[in-house]
Nucleic acid binder design. Sequence first.
DNA 1: GCCAACGTTGGC
DNA 2: GCCAACGTTGGC
Length: 160
Amino acid sequence: MIDDRPAWLVKSEPSVFSFDDLWAAPDRRTVWDGVRNYQARNYLRDDMRVGDVVVFYHSNAAPAGVAGLAEVASAPYPDPSQFDPASPYHDPASDAAAPRWWSVEVRATRHLSRLVPLAELRADPRLAALDLPLLRRGNRLSVMPVPPGAVARIVELAAG
DNA sequence: GCCAACGTTGGC
DNA sequence: GCCAACGTTGGC
């Protein structure tokens, strides 16, 4: 039952890494690295658990919206890219003994029958009643919680 | 490309 | 600790 599990939304720019890219990855799986915001880091490090639902959102896209579903596929671990000088996410100030940035692995589980555009999410009264952080004004978090019931509703909209 | 909203940095 | 400047995000 999808609704019994905690759910999270992650953003990705599809021109960089799309849901289809995740679907095409080995084991449909990848490390979710490069998150460089403390609030999002706290969700990754402290709250995400194996089996949690992940809503894969395309940002900076036309249209932006929910592209598919995934799940948390590993326990949190220090984001390897912070220690990699060749990575654009390299953080020379991060100490290996007390890593600043964390990752989990995610695995794609379900293609939606179509992308659900942000405008449709905003227009849906049932989602509005759930107060999705994604839909709050000025939201810029790249990892955020999804309230109970919202995933099922998004799937309904996709089937819509 | 524009621009509003936001997070971070750094001078004081 | 304040807050202005700056850089980034992300919808349009």
